[in-house]
Amino acid sequence: MIRLEEVTKRYYSLVAVDHVSFTIPRGEVVGILGPNGAGKTTLLKLIAGFLNPDEGTIRPQGGAWPAIGYKPERLLFPNQLRVRAYLQMVARLSDLPAAQIDDAVAHSLAQVKLTAAAAKRIGNCSKGMRQRLSLAQSLLGRPPLVLLDEPSNGLDPEGQADICRLIEQLRAAGQTVLMSSHQLPEVTRVCTHLIILNQGRIHFRSSMEQALALRPYVTIHSDRDLSPLTTVLGALHPQVEVDGNAVTLVDDAIGMRRHVLSVLVGTGYDVVRVEQKRATLEEIYAEAVQWHEES
């Protein structure tokens, strides 16, 4: 839907976004992860058209620019307006026919469970309500591209679960979503694609399916400390790691598990448990961010 090509954005000497290239596929939910100051908000503002790239291009693929619904990170509103009046204004700006505005606003309020607060002044709304209102305005009129900057920030667990359900519904309805978040479980649940940014650069980019299929590992737990076998086991494969009572076999080393088991049994160790797992998003994230810090 949108293609970013070598996009760079600088704030004086600080490079906020550094030669970033990726495509936002139509109908997918792309999650951007990264520590504070990684460039997530700048990237969203570049795509929304608020900022111009210093280098590179941002172009729609196969047609004109899609209509965009944007939910900023900061929850700032015209506080004197009432919730419904604000959404009606957004609906008019979205070119909805006059006859459909009330229905669209009611639907949007129901989507974010804010119907009861429709007549309330925005200035009197709680932080959670403002977060829901911010989300409601971004979804109003079903824009083909929805940009969400930290959509569940400041919400209670129930609210966060609601947001996840809502984004899943958007995906099912074929809307394209690009969201930044610090909530790894949320991203794991709703996103189909993942980008990890750090200091303006992409450090990891993959479909969520591929990301979670990465780095499978097997951990064999023994009854005693395996340190004396470190050299023997390490010689079998470089990705065999001994840590206390456990030995972990990563990626290709998994194929060596029969050899590892026979070494353990042959040297008098008892095998108490064998676990087969894949890397979690937390591990992938930590690795991507740590890799940057080390480099």
Binding site: A48, F50, W65, G69, Y70, P72, F77, V90
Partner: peptide
């Protein structure tokens, strides 16, 4: 020029 207008501006062609 207030930041509350970001969502409104995003809607404008």
């Amino acid at each position: 020029h207030g930041a509350a207008n970001y969502p409104l501006l995003a809607r404008l062609p």
